[in-house]
Design a protein around this nucleic acid. Sequence first.
DNA 1: ATAACAAACTTACTAATGGTAAGTTAAATT
DNA 2: AATTTAACTTACCATTAGTAAGTTTGTTAT
Lengths: 111, 111
Amino acid sequence: MDRPYDCEKLPHICSNFHDTIEFIGKRWTGIIIYTLMSGPKRFHEIAEAIPGISDRLLTERLNELVKEGLITKKHLESSAKKVEYELTAIGMALKDVIIAIRNWTKKRANL
Amino acid sequence: MDRPYDCEKLPHICSNFHDTIEFIGKRWTGIIIYTLMSGPKRFHEIAEAIPGISDRLLTERLNELVKEGLITKKHLESSAKKVEYELTAIGMALKDVIIAIRNWTKKRANL
DNA sequence: ATAACAAACTTACTAATGGTAAGTTAAATT
DNA sequence: AATTTAACTTACCATTAGTAAGTTTGTTAT
């Protein structure tokens, strides 16, 4: 069986695969990104779209995503309290990953 | 912006997306699957291919993957001590997800 | 044949992360 | 002026992960 790619020739990519999957696989991170795929959202909108997540973890994950450059945070209307989160271009590029996971989930359900 | 798919029409898929990404996103799970993409491997081969993982967690993750039907465990040579782990068809089907993550990682590195 | 070694766990313990709930702060609403 | 709301923040307990030593059965060397 062949590998998806050659680790000898792409050590940088190989060494980063683990980091990437561990990052986007952190608890709640995947579904937060998925939620933002349908457009920018405010804090409470994300919270309401994801049953089970707590304010604390949502704050933490959003901060991590901002830090990693996958989303941006915008303060609305000169108010310190209204914010909006939006995927960056590289964050939005995760759509292909999400589609692949969706397809796999569907395939698995049909076994 | 359009969604990758319509949750109204595919509630089953929608509700399972989170489960899927949380499962394959569990610590070490992604890289274990990736490691097995290049063919069946014995316990110590997987351990050696994944720097940092401990015997305890590797055992735990492999058992979870067997339980979820993504890999199979084969005892070699009528011996109780030599085992081999291999991706099932549905486990191997995660290759598309892995390729998507690889592509995204590459794209991100070029920013 | 016996002793040392190895593979694949298993157990015990500590550290890190996640979950729950209450508290905070500034702005918007009544 | 008092109440409510958004978006955190803090404190505390539960769950999960990391580290290291121990176990069991089979294999290899003497």
